[in-house]
Design a protein around this nucleic acid. Structure first.
Lengths: 354, 354
DNA sequence: CTGAAAGCGCTTACAG
DNA sequence: CTGAAAGCGCTTACAG
């Protein structure tokens, strides 16, 4: 009916024949209004298709109900990243449920650009995802805005951070493979600067060593990859293929699913049978892992727990109620699938082809 | 140094010893200021770590530089969806480049909730993704806010929409398979209500028929799936497996990659060799398609073109400059991989095992 | 080149 | 129960 862009409260009040104050009270639901007045206002709302301006509200409330999420990565994209995508999805849903919306940015690890942006947007709080340099945290601290860190590492004792227990996950991976009877391991490790990759590797090695498997000729070999993609897994295996064959490795572990899949595809293309000849195991429990053929045994990461908690803890930080833990760790579990020859209980070695 | 939350322009001006107007001019870069004054202000900015409030600015500018993206789906998640995730990623990047930020919401197809939300947020424009009911568009029209539609269908002549040419893509898929020598086709079709699925199917059938392959016993069979996921592809193939074998189909086409992969895994698990015994083809060119073993022949969708254009066209709509086309179609091309036995030129039938 | 004033669209005490 | 007034943090004519 009425074709103007956005009507203001003033126009609404005018149409309803009340003051702005009164109109505001019925719109926002705070404060009194007689039934008749309320109805008049509501009718005017309909007529004008009145939408209160969240911008104006944020201005006076000094609160936007927006949360800034910054993913620190050197390369885009973010959202379609197999693990971050899942975490972001969970954050989106959890935020919605608590009445927040999300501003999403990617930034390089050293940069303060996105942080400045979020600050200018006056977000209520910040979720910092992935590895980020100390300078970013120090910077954020200056503004005492509520924030927390997801999936990154920090020495700083007062930074609230949520991480999955990657070291324990690495240990479990080693146990599973060992229980399947493997004694000679080839390991593809993703970028050492990344907390997850280095801890998963550390846990895996540690457990192997405690089981009596040593580094070197008769035990395990680590191949380092500077990236963590499917393609780098593929390239790495192509380069090491000869050595891999000669070495007589019966198990391959990668610090994430993409690397594992890339390497596994190379093996299969060259006729190596999985899991009969070589067992392969990844980490992250990405969607592809379950879809692959053979499906990939992996270690789960509680993306939904992390995403959900990130939002609810940040919410508590924002409202200032209740204390929050500095550190929350999420346990990982081995998901046994077709690519390793072991039974579900992880203790033995059949040809689990489910 | 200074530990207060957010300093206002007033405080800034005070510290610099100038008026708010002057401070505003140097901050925003609009208007004059003598070098000395400019420097004083800038020093104060440093000292206070002053961040101008985007909220206040939006208030006076009547412009937020935010774009609302609503994905209409019945089920979450959005961001980790294989195709929408890619489009959203592109939108995010394109938006960043043009100085916009994104509010992202999912909503069910009939609902006006997200739309209302975006309106209240005073986004500068709206990108509506996926199928959406007529009522949503009619509703949006009431507010004459710039908007456009991505990957949906509409009869409405004045709705700007970006779609990939799914019918032509379906035809090309049929041609490829036919050129490989296939004459008996099994088709798994995703939800018929969705534009993409129905057009891909239509194009595929149409081309087959024009090539003399008919529906039924001696030509092709269509199995309808109510969902478009990997699992539904798998289930569908499990149910039809016997019929599939008996039918002597040599080619399987699905209206998206996930369905194709689900079905293909079932075939492989039952010992059917791909592509030697059956060629499989999907649609979307999702990341998994290239990673799979055998990698999946598919039809590409220009997600990056769509995402980029959506933002730049919306930007033109917002600034009101230049006219924009009502409809933009994106061409799809066949990506030949290992799952079909054909050469790259699509004309013949080797055992293209690259 | 700089400052006082009005205004963007709300909410919130405070009177009445 | 309702309204006038002030204020949130900016920008933008308009004087000077």
């Amino acid at each position: 009916m009425d074709n103007k862009l956005n009507h203001s409260l003033r126009e609404l009040a005018q149409l309803a024949g009340v003051s702005k104050s009164t109109a505001s009270r019925v719109i926002s639901g705070n404060g009194y209004a007689s039934p008749e007045v309320r109805e008049r206002v509501l009718k005017a709302v309909e007529q004008l298709r009145y939408k209160p301006s969240a911008v104006a509200r944020a201005m006076v409330a000094k609160r936007t109900h927006n949360i800034g999420v910054i993913v620190f990565r050197d390369r885009l994209p973010i959202v379609s990243h197999t693990l971050y995508g899942r975490i972001i999805d969970e954050i989106l849903m959890a935020a919605e449920a608590l009445g927040y919306s999300i501003f999403l940015k990617t930034d390089r690890e050293m940069s303060l650009r996105s942080t400045d942006y979020m600050l200018e947007q006056r977000v209520d709080g910040l979720i910092l995802v992935s590895r980020l340099q100390k300078n970013v945290i120090d910077y954020v601290k200056n503004f005492n805005i509520p924030y927390l860190m997801v999936n990154g590492s920090t020495e700083d004792p007062d930074v609230v951070h949520l991480v999955s227990n990657d070291e324990a996950g690495g240990e479990r991976a080693a146990e599973h493979l060992y229980a399947c009877g493997h004694r000679k391991f080839f390991i593809i490790a993703g970028p050492g600067e990344h907390r997850s990759h280095s801890l998963r590797l550390a846990g895996f090695r540690k457990r192997l060593e405690s089981l009596g498997v040593c580094s070197g000729q008769e035990g395990f070999t680590v191949a380092q990859s500077s990236e963590s993609s499917f393609d780098s897994g593929r390239k790495l295996m192509e380069e090491h293929y000869a050595a891999f064959l000669e070495g007589g490795y019966s198990a391959l572990f990668s610090t994430n699913d993409m690397l594992a899949l890339g390497a596994m595809k190379v093996l299969m293309e060259r006729g190596v049978r999985i899991p009969e000849e070589v067992s392969v195991m990844g980490y992250d429990n990405t969607e592809v892992a379950g879809m692959y053929h053979p499906s990939l045994t992996t270690v789960s990461v509680d993306a939904s727990g992390i995403g959900r908690d990130a939002v609810s803890i940040l919410d508590r930080l924002i409202s200032g109620e209740g204390s929050v833990p500095r550190l929350i760790e999420y346990e990982s579990e081995v998901i046994v699938r077709q690519s390793t020859n072991g039974k579900e209980d992880g203790t033995c070695c059949g040809t689990g082809n489910t």
